[in-house]
Write a protein that binds this DNA or RNA. Sequence first.
DNA 1: TTGATAGTAGTAATCATTACTACTTATGAG
DNA 2: CTCATAAGTAGTAATGATTACTACTATCAA
Lengths: 135, 135
Amino acid sequence: MRYSKQREVILEVVNHSFNHPTAEMVYDKVKEKIPNISLGTIYRNLNALADASLIKRISIPKDVDHFDHRNCDHYHFCCMKCHQLYDLPASKIEMLIHNCEKEEQVQITDCEVLLYGICKKCLKGKDEENGIKRK
Amino acid sequence: MRYSKQREVILEVVNHSFNHPTAEMVYDKVKEKIPNISLGTIYRNLNALADASLIKRISIPKDVDHFDHRNCDHYHFCCMKCHQLYDLPASKIEMLIHNCEKEEQVQITDCEVLLYGICKKCLKGKDEENGIKRK
DNA sequence: TTGATAGTAGTAATCATTACTACTTATGAG
DNA sequence: CTCATAAGTAGTAATGATTACTACTATCAA
């Protein structure tokens, strides 16, 4: 993979975003630095970066893909009321993966745990404060 | 939700499928019993059944949605080589969910664990035997 | 330096999914 | 039972996120 300014900025934007941005959201951020960037370039590079395991792609039912910087293992919680996506700390996942590799004789390279429910805010009835919504 | 023959057959097809069918695959199966069923009817009912928690929707990166009968808890393994989706038995998930609810003060209603890697068959170099492929 | 080729902007095409429309069916109140 | 109402359906059109295409540009190894 050869260097490009566009890809550098896209990676930087994802790495500095803590809201699991969609391609569209990355597009808006990158446009601030490269105003004439093409949406196709965003998609192509997000896919390339995810394939190269430099970022992570998160698929959520009935929603477009989100992307996430790839630091240490963690998992995700999706609120079914405000559709906000939250990070949750990893703890038991390593063991789960290890067990699975042994018992099923597969080789696991990646893991996505998605929990669904109602977030703390919405449980308190403060859902109207949240920003990110599903279409 | 009112009775319809179409929805009954769709639910029956999903419940008797052990290959995590897509809407298209359900469509093909249902057509054997109701030849003039509409694809829109399949989508509408799969969504209704998933919303009513009678079946489960599985979202996989770079793939269309799959559906699954909803029996006891289990999780999924997606082979990155043959793109086959496998069931894996649940074991540690309950604990993980319980911990998370306590620590994060959220209410969890559903859980999807997706592991990625290479399946047993593909590790043995028998990938050409597999059927289901991504676009 | 330079040429092969990966990357890009801009636009058109794709295709899974949803919306729409006119018709059909389930079902519950009378 | 019967019949009005509203949920469901088939068939088709529309949507919209994503990808493909094309002509141009930039990277970088030799």
